[in-house]
């Protein structure tokens, strides 16, 4: 019984981080209709940002988080202006391959500049844990869950209660109608791409003290984000949140209950991704997908 409870607690805490990660990808897709294949690299840049702030200046990753997120968002703005903007009208596949190329460049540039060594950030809370009865909860995971919750709440508030947020949602709902309402769609695209990068970087900054930081950490995170977003339904934020907790639960359960589970847990995201695409491509809460 306590194993089940432990498993549930672990998956809820992990689900918080996954939610933040996947909301970034989902938001970017919802607005621009482009799947950001370089998203994992923004997560990686966020993790390195936090790592360097911590190792060079001794700044805690959570304090560095806003600055890191803004820095990566500015970088994303440059990427958007110089590459993505030119292919917005091209077939979806060109956009995907372009972003795939951008991701490759960022990833390998990072590997050359910062070497492929695995690094990690140590914080006062990353090695401690607290006990609730039989249940062991690492402090680092509580911190990430709380921060992720606050960030997502702030994002939802911003999307629903501010002029810009509403404009972004308008573009996501109906691009042409948004143009007629006088919304500068190109600016919303840029803004959503930057937001997407900022959320990725925030995820990365928090992942920096939970996972090891390497130039290649982005790709598995990208796949997990895909799995969550596809599971929840592309472009649906409530669906994405549900998908994040489902994936977190599935991974944790596999790790706990299946023999050799830690290794198999790596494959859960792929299985979920394939399974959902095959059996229910619209996801659990998503709109119908354009299959043709």
């Amino acid at each position: 019984m306590s194993m089940l409870l432990q498993c549930l607690v672990d998956s809820i805490l992990l689900g918080g981080l996954y939610s933040l990660m996947a909301v970034g990808l989902s938001l970017g897709f919802g607005v621009t209709r482009i799947i950001n294949f370089a998203y994992g690299e923004f997560i990686m840049l966020g993790a390195y940002g936090a790592f360097f702030c911590s190792s060079l200046a001794g700044i805690d990753p959570l304090i560095a988080l806003p600055a890191v997120a803004i820095g990566v968002a500015l970088f994303a703005a440059i990427v958007f202006e110089f590459s993505l903007r030119r292919v917005l009208r091209a077939p979806a596949i060109n956009q995907i391959l372009l972003l795939f190329g951008v991701g490759l460049v960022i990833q390998n540039l990072a590997a050359i500049l910062w070497t492929g060594d695995a690094r990690s950030v140590e914080t006062p809370y990353s090695l401690t844990a607290r006990e609730f009865g039989d249940i062991n909860v690492p402090d680092g995971r509580i911190v990430t869950f709380l921060v992720a919750t606050v960030l997502i709440a702030a994002l939802l508030w911003w999307l629903h209660r501010t002029e810009l947020g509403r404009a972004i949602r308008a573009v996501a709902q109906n691009r042409d109608a948004a143009v007629l309402m006088g919304i500068n769609v190109m600016r919303m695209y840029l803004l959503s791409f930057m937001l997407n990068a900022a959320l990725g970087a925030a995820t990365g900054a928090m992942a920096s003290f939970l996972l090891t930081v390497t130039p290649f950490m982005g790709f598995p995170m990208l796949i997990k984000s895909f799995a969550i977003v596809v599971l929840g339904g592309l472009g649906s934020i409530p669906g994405t949140l549900a998908g994040a907790f489902l994936l977190a639960f599935a991974e944790t359960a596999v790790a706990y209950y299946v023999p050799d589970g830690i290794g198999w847990a790596e494959g859960v995201a792929f299985a979920v991704l394939l399974g959902v695409l095959i059996f229910r491509p619209r996801g659990i809460l998503g709109q119908a997908v354009e299959v043709a």
Binding site: I35, A92, I93, I96, I223, F226, A227, V230, G263, W264, E266, G267, A269, F270, A271, L273, L274, L277, I278, P281, V289, E290, V291, A292
Partner: peptide, 20 residues
């Protein structure tokens, strides 16, 4: 009948899944 990006993502997931 998955097309475009959905097919692309499915192939990506398949190859990584097989690796695991």
């Amino acid at each position: 009948r998955l097309r475009g990006i959905y097919f692309a993502i499915a192939t990506l997931a398949l190859s990584e899944g097989l690796r695991v």
